[in-house]
Write a protein that binds this DNA or RNA. Structure first.
Length: 276
DNA sequence: GGCGATCTGTTCTAATACAA
DNA sequence: TTGTATTAGAACAGATCGCC
């Protein structure tokens, strides 16, 4: 077992990754002749070890097994914990549904590790940064001018699914793309050339991991459940708070952000992009 | 191996920009 | 003012994964 943990640690270090999923991990262990993989159920032998807690620092994000470096501080709440927190959160969130002023968000921000407590229900989500100075100077300055730390507000018919997309790059998160661009990341050249949608650029797997790590460390979230016109509430909140990374419906949308996003789209759609 | 949950590429919708 | 194009952002649907 020590050999397995050691090999995964080495692999993560050499490839500059912070974590690996069970299927990929079993594949590299099989290639190294350490742990044979299942032909029809990829990753199954390793998952069985994980379920027996043979790799104690591994954890589940939703259903997926994640193995960070053995000395990593990255952890998520386990399933039992998340189930109980889910029930509590659901109750709390419904209580927040009593909105008296539809332009003011009744929020109590929490760390990203509370992602599993978010219900799969419709509502508005709100993301704030712990410290504006973590952003590049120009964006920090804009945020300070707005007098709050809220950087993004969005709506979702399914908050759990949408926030997994936005915060963990499991889909096409507008917030994730905007934040990555603001932090200085760019998509791989030509990565959208063979795609039908020429706008939904993605960062490299390594960059995605770094952005996710940044989000986990520096972003807090909250949400409210809403049954009704989500667009109406979202529009009101965006007009009220003018979040830094919202473009749509935002009276103070940033030209700098639109320019960065356009640059990313251009890079992803070109093999010979040269930055100015 | 069945079944449900999650992931990922694609599509849809609404808002905005711009030209006629 | 109206029609069309573009963009941002959410949802859909098939594929894949993981549990039992």
């Amino acid at each position: 077992m020590e050999k397995i943990i050691e090999y995964i640690d080495d692999y993560l270090r050499v490839n500059n990754l912070i974590q690996i999923d069970a299927v990929t991990a079993n594949a590299i262990l099989a290639k190294a002749g350490i742990l044979r993989d299942s032909v029809d159920r990829l990753g199954k032998p390793l998952r069985e070890l994980l379920r027996k807690n043979k790799i104690p620092h591994a954890f589940q994000n939703g259903r997926n097994w994640i193995i960070p470096k053995s000395d990593s501080k990255v952890t998520f709440i386990n399933k039992q914990e998340s189930d109980s927190k889910y029930k509590t959160a659901k109750k709390d969130s419904f209580s927040k549904f009593q909105i008296k002023d539809d332009s003011i968000l009744p929020l109590k921000f929490k760390g990203i590790t509370q992602i599993n407590a978010i219900p799969a229900l419709p509502g508005i989500y709100c993301l704030k940064i712990k410290e504006p100075s973590l952003l590049p100077e120009i964006f920090c300055s804009h945020l300070i001018d707005r007098g709050h730390d809220i950087i993004y507000i969005g709506l979702a018919k399914n908050l759990k699914r949408r926030l997994n997309q936005e915060l963990f790059a499991k889909g096409h998160g507008t917030f994730f793309r905007s934040l990555g661009a603001v932090l200085g990341y760019r998509p791989e050249q030509g990565s959208l050339l063979n795609k039908i949608n020429k706008k939904n650029f993605k960062f490299s797997a390594k960059d995605e991991q770094e952005i996710i790590k940044w989000i986990v460390e520096n972003i807090e979230l909250d949400w409210i459940l809403i049954e009704g016109d989500l667009n109406f509430f979202e529009g009101n909140y965006i007009r009220k708070y003018k979040p830094l990374l919202n473009i749509d419906k935002n009276p103070l949308k940033l030209l700098e952000l639109s320019t960065l996003r356009a640059e990313c789209v251009e890079i992803a759609n070109s093999m010979n992009f040269k930055a100015l």
